[in-house]
């Protein structure tokens, strides 16, 4: 395979790994955000912990793999993305650390202060992860202020209204996924409490996503390619329709379908952004000459080839055993018997 073809394949794989991360982690992040509000007592907390416990850690490895794949296949993108966006990446890191600790250590001690502070640690950290990652990806779609001397934009400049809108879409999508997951995996009073949240967040997602796409059309170069090839508009359209399906299925109480629809939103949201960015991976808003593309940042042919073979072998294996663990834990977690992390 030619170097250019391999670089293109890796760009697609790069997109797929990110999307896999967001789908697998979406419901845990969503449940984390609503955790302090809907878990009223120890049993509720146990139940929610057990609903996400067997899966979330394996999901997070997709994020680590996304980082590793960026490093291996597009070292220059990895180096510049992480150093240009230094502070946001550390914020995301701290949130990832505290999400894990909050969730797993919450019930390791019975002191009310311990439990309460870790409950909020888990909740707040779960909120920060989609906010920071939402801001990051919105900025990638928007373009960064990369000049001759690297990053010229300020930290606060990253938190522009467009990026906040992107973060809102992330937060709402994950909240809906969380509610759907609770309905699929749990029983008891949590279902009703979660339902109340979805009745607000599901319609809000449609509105936020529509606004985000309008802003994308007005403020970013993402849709330039779409204008050249109008057929591509089908991608954001499916994203928007999927968000409407979330509303429909939430109100019809078909939660497995609602869950699938949030996954569709994630897939087609990123498909829109990545299609618009292509072949840029770290686009410069100032001058396209400073953009990092998949071509000027890709690793050598040999590295891409080896990594491609490794990915072809191990990605299916990982997917297979992760799906198998979902099958293993297919039973509903009942409020009465849930033990959580103990």
């Amino acid at each position: 395979m030619s170097h250019s073809l391999l670089a293109n394949i890796w760009f697609v794989l790069w997109c797929v790994i990110w999307v896999a991360y967001f789908i697998f982690d979406s419901y845990t992040l969503g449940i984390g955000m609503m955790f302090p509000y809907i878990a009223k007592n120890r049993q509720d907390r146990n139940q929610l912990q057990e609903v996400v416990g067997p899966f979330w850690n394996g999901a997070e490895v997709w994020l680590i793999t996304a980082g590793g794949a960026t490093f291996a296949a597009f070292p220059a993108v990895y180096a510049d993305m992480f150093s240009f966006l230094y502070v946001p990446f550390y914020l995301a890191l701290f949130a990832l650390i505290f999400r894990a600790v909050g969730l797993e250590f919450m019930h390791k001690d019975d002191h009310p202060m311990w439990v309460k502070s870790l409950k909020w640690t888990f909740g707040v950290a779960s909120f920060f992860i989609p906010v920071v990652l939402g801001v990051l990806f919105a900025n990638l779609f928007y373009g960064l202020e990369i000049g001759k001397n690297g990053m010229e934009g300020s930290l606060l400049g990253l938190f522009k209204p467009y990026a906040i809108l992107g973060a809102t879409v992330f937060v709402l999508t994950f909240l809906n996924a969380g509610v759907a997951w609770i309905h699929v995996k749990a029983d008891g009073q949590l279902l009703e409490r979660a339902n109340k949240i979805a009745r607000v967040t599901a319609p809000s997602l449609v509105a936020a996503l529509a606004m985000f796409f309008v802003a994308t059309a007005n403020r970013t170069p993402i849709f330039d390619r779409f204008n050249e090839m109008p057929i591509l508009y089908i991608i954001p359209t499916i994203a928007l329709i999927s968000s409407m399906m979330v509303v429909l299925f939430v109100y019809k109480k078909k939660y497995l379908l609602a869950l699938a629809s949030t996954a569709d939103v994630i897939i087609f949201f990123f498909a829109t952004g990545f299609t618009g960015m292509y072949p840029n991976m770290l686009p410069s808003r100032l001058n396209d000459a400073f953009s990092l593309t998949l071509h000027n940042s890709a690793s050598s042919q040999k590295t891409l080839q080896i990594m491609f073979i490794v990915a072809c072998i191990f990605v299916p294996i990982v997917l297979a055993y992760q799906i198998w663990t979902h099958y293993l834990f297919r039973e509903r977690v009942t409020n009465k018997d849930a033990k959580g992390y103990h």
Binding site: F71, A72, A73, P75, V310, F314, Q322
Partner: peptide
């Protein structure tokens, strides 16, 4: 170093961390 250093890191995640 990315061309050399990145691969073991990615493989580590893919083969071991998962």
């Amino acid at each position: 170093m990315g061309d050399i250093f990145g691969s073991p890191l990615a493989i580590e995640a893919l083969v071991a961390f998962f």
